[in-house]
Design a protein around this nucleic acid. Structure first.
Lengths: 347, 347
DNA sequence: TTGTACGCGTTATCAG
DNA sequence: CTGATAACGCGTACAA
């Protein structure tokens, strides 16, 4: 169709008006070669102050912005980090990548961010798309990836950090905590608080289920009781929590015991519903959330929950990745960031 | 004499197993040239089924992932969209880019996302960094950018969409609403509800201030009263809201009237503090938030607030950008997405 | 349907 | 300190 555009560009090695401005353009203006411009930008100490000045001026008047695409191709370094998270609107993951991004950005890396929606198949496609941009490293959420994804990852030959979970067989680096451990710890906690019954309210994602199951199994071992559960396939919401408690009460006749929720949001919903039913908290019904979000401590009564330091986690992921990028062959590194049960007033 | 390809492959220094696999590699394996591989990938219909199969096999066994960096350089299309938001952990912006990303991703675009932290100088650096990767378009938050940033943006000659605010002089496309209009509307609303006094609790960012000032000016015009205010330079938080009300009461002797907060989070804090002081809501103290976040409707009493449809906004931004990318010369497009006051039980 | 030649805008490697 | 020249891996004419 419009070959005019192409032509004008091909023809433009000398032209500049509106045409692309490259290092050659700058060089011409400053009376040096393109290579010198490149050096001036990457290592100013290697060019004479005089030419440096002229180059600066040329850049200033043209508004030249170096083409990092060409740079990446030539140097085989993209200064790009690929990151894949389940959802960017989920504060858990948003705050982890945020913490992760800061040190990376300081080192000159940019972040290519995509959302997998917790779908392994979709994640695989995203990994392929990201890998095609030749990132210098990749940040993944969780430890479960399709076989094909793993293969591509290994083949890419770049550092990989898997966060928010732990495994004995990481692709490369792994920074997180054991979700099942957290579930068991909560079970022990509520059992020691004297509760004889328990229930769970959980989102459908794999890690939430793992916490829930670990909790249920441990609590069952401890008390012999069976543990009713409400699971959402959709994403967690406050109203979901309210409905969950209603179902627990109306369908499972659960009117006394501890309720372990897979997120503070769900816990908040359960709390709201419990209050509207004027249940005694934590006397008869105890509620435990997960995540220790900002609002948790301000609810009435303040929410007992499980805290994982997402800032630390993200920073640790960055630190380890940076080391690997720098050449340190720290394969199969595992870092357990742990968790803390924050006892407040709902349990 | 241009046997570059052969040379480069033979030359592969340290030639080990993990040598880079390119389209040439695939071509060799499939018995075709590099171009045919390129075509097979971009337009399968243009190669014979037989070669297509052989190429597929070669790709399969090598785990080849096309190099989009080289592709972008050659085609002058990066299929990359640059996005700059104040903060990724702010649900307002996270949900807008999320909505924006979906249609973009569907069209094959990837998102390069960075956080400016509401700092214009930092934003300028980010814009430069992003522009160096030659994105096909750019998504910016807000309408205030440094002169240098504007210059670079104009020079980049790519579609630009500015969201979450409105101006008569957009760089290119603009999708948002008038913050001052929202502030005035809230002033009218509380005035009509019969309040004779008002106060504001606001974060320090420019748009929040604009809403606050419009509110204050209008309310002052309407009632002649002066409007005490608490402003945070730090990011808004629930505890900030609590402190704000304390200050309003203790320092400004504000015990009756409407309080317009710059976010639901701050409003929640004010609400919590008001309840702990057992103030009559909305009888004596009315509280209006901003954002209509998920939790707003579930608070007790449910929070009256201002809603802006961020999903619509993000999608609209994507739609318009896509059109511009497709060649539509819709310069200086403005789209007012509007806002709604959601009356609930705090005002 | 397939291939050749070349350019995209840098960095890397040598020379000078 | 500066400059040729060759990659980097792919798309885009144009030919065959």
């Amino acid at each position: 169709m419009d070959t005019q555009h192409d032509k004008s560009i091909k023809r433009a090695p000398g032209g500049k008006s509106g045409g692309r401005v490259t290092m050659s353009t700058i060089g011409k203006l400053a009376g040096v070669s393109q290579v010198t411009v490149s050096r001036a930008l990457s290592d100013p100490a290697k060019v004479s102050p005089a030419t440096m000045t002229r180059i600066r001026e040329a850049i200033e008047i043209t508004g030249f912005v170096p083409n990092a695409v060409a740079g990446a191709l030539a140097s085989r370094k993209s200064m790009l980090i690929s990151a894949i998270v389940p959802s960017i609107t989920n504060i858990v993951h948003a705050s982890m990548v945020q913490a992760f991004s800061i040190p990376m950005r300081e080192k000159g890396y940019e972040i290519l961010l995509s959302e997998s929606g917790l779908d392994a198949e979709n994640e695989e496609k995203l990994i392929a798309a990201h890998l095609s941009r030749r990132p210098d490293a990749i940040y993944l959420t969780g430890i479960h990836h399709s076989p094909q994804a793993r293969k591509m990852l290994m083949g890419a030959d770049i550092p990989v950090v898997e966060v928010w979970d732990l495994t004995d067989t990481p692709i490369d680096i792994c920074v997180g905590f054991h979700h099942s451990q957290a579930g068991r710890a909560v079970a022990d906690f509520v059992h020691q608080s004297g509760h004889k019954r328990a229930a769970t309210v959980s989102a459908g994602d794999e890690r939430a289920r793992r916490r829930r199951d670990a909790f249920s199994n441990r609590f069952a071992d401890l008390t012999g009781s069976d543990i009713p559960t409400v699971t959402f396939e959709a994403s967690a919401s406050l109203s979901g929590g309210r409905q969950a408690l209603s179902r627990l009460i109306d369908e499972d006749n659960f009117t006394e015991g501890a309720i372990f929720c897979s997120s503070d949001l769900l816990a908040h919903g359960v709390l709201v519903e419990a209050e509207s039913r004027q249940l005694d908290i934590p006397g008869k019904v105890a509620i435990i959330g997960f995540g220790d979000q900002d609002f948790a401590q301000h609810l009435h009564p303040a929410l007992t929950t499980v805290r994982v330091d997402r800032g630390d986690l993200g920073r640790a992921a960055a630190t380890h990745l940076l080391k690997r990028i720098a050449g340190e062959p720290a394969h199969n590194a595992k870092l357990d960031i742990g968790f803390t049960i924050i006892k407040r007033h709902t349990a």
